[in-house]
Design a protein around this nucleic acid. Sequence first.
DNA 1: CCTTAACTTCACAAATTTCTGAAATTAGCG
DNA 2: CGCTAATTTCAGAAATTTGTGAAGTTAAGG
Lengths: 166, 166
Amino acid sequence: MTETARRDPEAVSKFVEGFAAQLVEAGMQRMPARVFAALLSSDSGSLTSAELGDLLQVSPAAVSGAVRYLAQQHMVAREREPGSRRERYRVHSNQWYEALTSREAVIKRWEHALREGVDSLGEATPAGRRLAETLAFFEFLDGEIAMMMDRWRAHRDRVFGGGVES
Amino acid sequence: MTETARRDPEAVSKFVEGFAAQLVEAGMQRMPARVFAALLSSDSGSLTSAELGDLLQVSPAAVSGAVRYLAQQHMVAREREPGSRRERYRVHSNQWYEALTSREAVIKRWEHALREGVDSLGEATPAGRRLAETLAFFEFLDGEIAMMMDRWRAHRDRVFGGGVES
DNA sequence: CCTTAACTTCACAAATTTCTGAAATTAGCG
DNA sequence: CGCTAATTTCAGAAATTTGTGAAGTTAAGG
């Protein structure tokens, strides 16, 4: 074939907005969600600030804020294009859902709050026991998630072949 | 001892607000988070609308909205107090984190959105492959979570003894 | 060094969300 | 059946969040 099917900008946009909407529903802020969806649906897996602004019809300021948030969450990486002051933002498709599932920081903070609750309400009280059980659940989760991700990587390599990049 | 340590309302409130804040940070709306934390920290595991309003210093309307949301998410159950038109809202400590982890509806919608993306961008494109991999990850998650929760229940029965209620 | 492209920060306007008071609805109980 | 306690719904006020334009900062390239 002389030409692979050209990307239909409208189809892409439809996916971007649809997927972003689901992320928003799950608690993510709108702009980070849109930026993230845009990156996910790009062929190279990375876009510049200008491209994002253009694609999503938003100001550079909005892109900047969204990217800062996503980078903090380890959902995108920033990389400097050598020989230019342009920056690219990239989803490492492996990495992002690892960030999503581990959420270490979140779980740790929950555990901390629960531990304080157990202490201040007393281990012997019904409420204290309930909190302790909840805490035990998150501690259990912590360990399980790590093992699960190991299994996922194995499964992934089997299905997608070890070699896929980005 | 003639008297178990009396609940210190201030300590309780401190836990409620602290834990609620963490839930908010993770994407939950403020009022449902506060109501939920209050229920978690109650000895009986259940409170009436009036008790909640009093405890959290909010209007009945606010309680009503929060409870509706929590019930939809299967994080609390409503139960009618027999012989009264008063309603109690309860956390089944087992059930709530099961609701939290399964999030079936959420995952299903993500999967749906991703499937559409794969279709419209094309399986053969780099972006399509990335979405397909992400989709595969969620499908994998689905199955893993069920098994993990089985292991949790076993672990829980071992540690907390099978008998704890509510 | 100076110029200038690229990104970030900041103050503010706009949009959205959240909570309230009040009216409407529901369902026990006499 | 009406009376009334309990909850829900709804319109709107208040607070918060979000995105913009413009000024500020950084660093590549001459």
